[in-house]
């Protein structure tokens, strides 16, 4: 839905570094970690300061896979590898878009170092050992921290665009994103009191300082856990959910499920199952078609999927007459 380009992925331009790799890679990919570390130290680059326009980058988060793709062909051409989540439609907004010849890596230090990156994009929750090893090899790290909504997303886009010397592309992308967000907000009608909403998936919910809070703020809804002073993600009992008696319960679903009778809409099934659960069936949400199941790539997204989630929820709420301003 956002900036994408049909241009094919270009190969990185780093012949001298490739020669270095030929010498050092066998040592770096050795299963003997200690030996790998020693030899790796001998092979490391001495200067981490690089020309941003030639930065060879590895992405190790689903969010940075998406941002790099959305920054356009110039950014994509610098990518040496992406995360193993990039092709998972459950979590990635760009599943199936990255060319198959771009390696998918799952955070193993040896594999990362063997690609001789200049920049590795990781998250604050990446294993500290991996972070330490990459730092010891003088690899520049972009550590993405804070995944609580649109402001954090903008920060991450600007940071990655800046690392690659593509600030203009980052600004263009964010302008397009914010325009769509403003258009959505202009369609939302504030109700008083706001409809009360809870997200509940696999027994977990989200309070304030989460992307779900950003969604509810955008759609003028009251996130009940946040209103009760809860922050972050935490386990929520079904009992507490029933006691809160929300107007809307948001859960995640697999969009398509193979069944004996063909393909069933997994979201419809998820809604039906949750609404029929003992106790939950008595809540306002279950009785008024207020159980909303949305694909996880939207509900769990900390990137452009948040906007998709807002659009999806808004459409569903209007159709079911749950949204502010809808026909009672």
């Amino acid at each position: 839905m956002l900036t994408t380009s049909p241009e094919p992925h270009a190969q990185p331009r780093h012949a001298p570094r490739k020669r270095l790799l030929e010498v050092c890679a066998p040592a770096l990919t050795s299963p003997v970690v200690a030996l790998g570390l020693l030899l790796g130290s001998a092979c490391h680059r001495t200067s981490p300061e690089l020309d941003p326009s030639h930065t060879r980058v590895i992405s190790q988060t689903a969010l940075s896979d998406e941002i790099l793709w959305n920054l356009g062909p110039e950014a994509r051409a610098r990518v040496a590898a992406i995360s193993s989540l990039a092709d998972d439609p459950q979590y990635s907004d760009v599943a199936g878009r990255w060319p198959t010849d771009v390696p998918r890596l799952a955070g193993q230090s040896e594999a990362l170092l063997a690609r001789t990156p200049d920049l590795v994009i990781i998250a604050s929750f990446t294993a500290p050992e991996t972070q330490a090893m990459l730092r010891a090899q003088k690899v520049k790290l972009r550590v993405l921290d804070g995944f609580t909504g649109f402001a954090d997303y903008r920060t991450h886009v600007r940071a990655i665009a800046g690392d690659l010397g593509l600030q203009a592309a980052g600004d263009t992308y964010l302008r397009s994103f914010d325009t769509q967000l403003q258009q959505l907000k202009s369609r939302v009608v504030e109700a008083s009191p706001r409809p009360r909403v809870v997200t509940w998936h696999a027994g977990n919910t989200a309070g304030s300082q989460t992307t779900f809070q950003a969604l509810t703020d955008t759609l003028a809804l009251e996130n009940i856990p946040a209103a009760n002073g809860r922050t972050g993600h935490f386990a929520l009992t079904g009992e507490q959910l029933i006691a809160w008696d929300p107007d809307i319960i948001v859960t995640a679903c697999a969009p398509d499920l193979a069944t004996d009778n063909g393909v069933e809409n997994g979201c419809v099934r998820a809604e039906r199952q949750l609404a029929a659960m003992p106790g939950i069936a008595a809540t306002k949400a279950a009785r008024n078609r207020g159980v909303l199941a949305i694909p996880p790539r939207m509900l769990f997204s900390s990137g452009s999927g948040m906007l998709d989630a807002c659009e999806y929820m808004h459409t569903q709420m209007i159709e079911r007459k749950l949204a502010p301003g809808a026909t009672p």
Binding site: S84, L85, D88, Q90, Y91, A106, H201, A202, G203, N204, A235, T237, G238, A252, M277, P278, G279, P296, F300
Partner: peptide
């Protein structure tokens, strides 16, 4: 890699009476 799946598995392995019904 699929954190919500891992979370669900661990929660079940830890044992729970949450949302158990008739």
């Amino acid at each position: 890699a699929r954190w919500d799946l891992g979370l669900k598995m661990i929660a079940w392995l830890m044992g729970s009476f949450e949302s158990r019904s008739w």
